[in-house]
Design a protein around this nucleic acid. Structure first.
Lengths: 187, 187
DNA sequence: TATTGTTATACTCTATAACTATA
DNA sequence: TATAGTTATAGAGTATAACAATA
């Protein structure tokens, strides 16, 4: 293909690029979203909460890739900041739906403009057309991931990729599970 | 399938996509790199260490976006695993250069194949041409970021973007500096 | 019994600061 | 004095587990 620079950076592959991009995005948004509790996290929650059909806490947690318990703290702070409100679902009283308040919508509008600027900054290394394409591709890939594995454990996915036990899979019984991966959730 | 869903996901923008992609990349690589201490981190270090001109620890830390102190622990483990070796630079005896051992090269070769598979999996939502384009664009943007801000504090960058004090910048004196951003490093 | 959400706890990762050695 | 690296400590973020309420 295009052989992207044969030098030192070629091997660092996709992971490094993504890490740098996300890191930068996170740095800049955190600095620009000081009016929203938990910065970019709160921003994402708020974004999801303005919709007509308010999401449940569990749905939010899954979409935002964070734990349900973390979501509780997050919403506590957003709620006491007056940006969202928890409403008990009449149909299932176990469920709380997260709705944005009027003030939440206002804050979000301002925040969104700032985030847009930040994102242009993050993609500054690309020309215009590439940026649009990049965003679209990233979104499509992310959606595919979310769809294919909302709760899939990574070990299974790796096994599927590598074909079985290529040497470093989980065949040995999983000698390393420091907490990062949520393997064996159902066992 | 174009028009990437105008609904709930449209507003979540770039940050969410990147987070999902990186998360997935991290999950899969961590599961597939059990033979390298610190998983993807160790992989990245090892990748940088095979080069003809061995990097210093500081250079590694900067490139990999981690702290110098963390790099010490990382290298301790990689070294005792026999994958890299620290060599004192004859020209400046304060500096240690990180070289991959023979075994390190072997392990890396196998790991790289697995990572390649993982990355294809991560980008599964895109068609072939898009993948190549995406990788190239991501790399270009990441390099631009590294170039423009190896040690730039995010606050300055935001100020530059927003134009001064658009309301949520750091003009108020930085009420929020929980440790994530490394602002005011020189002060 | 299963599920949603809360609470409390523990753990991992990362950053900060003080220290040693070289320059 | 300034820099590279190490060490020890503290902090933030995150996950885990036990619990209450509802289905």
């Amino acid at each position: 293909m295009t052989t992207p620079t044969p030098d030192s950076v070629a091997d660092t592959t996709l992971g490094w690029s993504l890490a740098v991009l996300l890191r930068r995005w996170h740095e800049l948004t955190e600095s620009s979203l000081t009016d929203i509790p938990h910065g970019s996290r709160g921003y994402h929650v708020l974004t999801a909460a303005v919709h007509a059909d308010p999401p449940t806490q569990a749905a939010l947690a899954e979409r935002l890739l964070i734990d349900r318990s973390v979501m509780t703290y997050l919403l506590d702070d957003l709620e006491s900041a007056g940006l969202v409100r928890r409403r008990v679902d009449p149909g299932d009283r176990r469920v709380r739906r997260v709705c944005a308040t009027e003030r939440g919508r206002e804050v979000l509008a301002g925040a969104r403009d700032r985030v847009d600027l930040v994102e242009e900054q993050v993609l500054a290394g690309m020309d215009g057309p590439s940026r649009a394409l990049f965003r679209a591709s990233a979104l499509r890939a992310a959606i595919a991931i979310q769809r294919s594995s909302p709760a899939t454990d990574p070990c299974a996915a790796v096994r599927e990729v590598t074909g079985g036990g290529t040497g470093a899979g989980t065949a040995s019984g999983g000698p390393r599970a420091p907490g990062g991966g949520r393997a064996r959730r159902g066992a």
